[in-house]
């Protein structure tokens, strides 16, 4: 029984899964998909795996899953013995899913701007950038007041959850879409904290943070 990730190295959505599997120590194989410039995610064989023609796809034995947020939950429920990454509590579950939805909005804005600038996708750059700034403002405010009340992560628990993983990559990659984070100091501090989670791993454009100890 081996997990296969249909992966594009430069995709932030695929990176979410590599990140959580690394943190949870889940072994997996990679099946590279030439998203750019090959557009392999629109090839017949891939559409049979995911009719939406989107990366990532994860195969666990015969089970084929798509959508990074859904797969994060699957991985957490199946492999996270600590129960921290997707806790059972109803309120926390709702909270996490709320931020998974925000993560999709971040993909639709920050990632779209990046695809337009770096991969010549025909997206409206300015509209994508403005959309990302609108979300980042709210994120920064949420995290700033979180710090004031002793909450370091997106959701209430005293530890990170899949919500933090889901929102992280396209926040970190926003500069590639021309979206600066200078105006979001609390958001920047949160990215330091995520990068210090044990088991953290990098991708192109996302650097490690130094250790927070003397």
């Amino acid at each position: 029984m081996i997990i296969t990730l249909y992966d594009f190295e430069l995709s932030g959505n695929c990176y979410k899964l590599r990140l959580l599997m690394n943190i949870l120590n889940v072994p997996y194989a990679i099946h590279p998909v030439d998203f750019f410039p090959g557009r392999e995610h629109k090839a017949d064989w891939f559409l049979r795996l995911n009719p939406f023609g989107q990366l990532p796809v994860l195969k666990d034995d015969d089970l084929v899953l798509s959508d990074s947020g859904a797969i994060l939950v699957y991985l957490a429920k199946k492999f996270d013995t600590s129960g921290q990454w997707f806790p059972d509590d109803p309120a926390v579950t709702a909270e996490i899913l709320r931020w998974h939805a925000v993560a999709d909005d971040i993909t639709a804005t920050s990632s779209a701007a990046r695809l337009a600038l770096g991969y010549s996708y025909p997206f409206d750059i300015e509209k994508s950038q403005m959309g990302a700034h609108r979300i980042f403002r709210i994120l920064d405010e949420h995290l700033w007041f979180g710090e004031k009340s002793g909450r370091d992560w997106l959701c209430a628990p005293a530890h990170p959850t899949t919500a933090d993983i889901a929102c992280f990559p396209y926040v970190m990659l926003s500069e590639e879409g021309g979206i600066g984070r200078q105006d979001y100091p609390a958001l920047r501090r949160w990215t330091d904290r995520v990068r210090r989670v044990p088991g953290f791993t990098v991708m192109s454009g996302i650097f490690p943070a130094g250790p927070a100890k003397s």
């Binding site: 710090e147 200078q182 100091p185 920047r188 501090r189 330091d192 943070a209 130094g210 927070a212």
Partner: peptide
Amino acid sequence: IASSEDLPFRHVYHGQLLGRE
């Protein structure tokens, strides 16, 4: 250019003043 609390342990703050980052 920042609040004191914007500079926690081992962090680098991104600021700007009069056009200079």
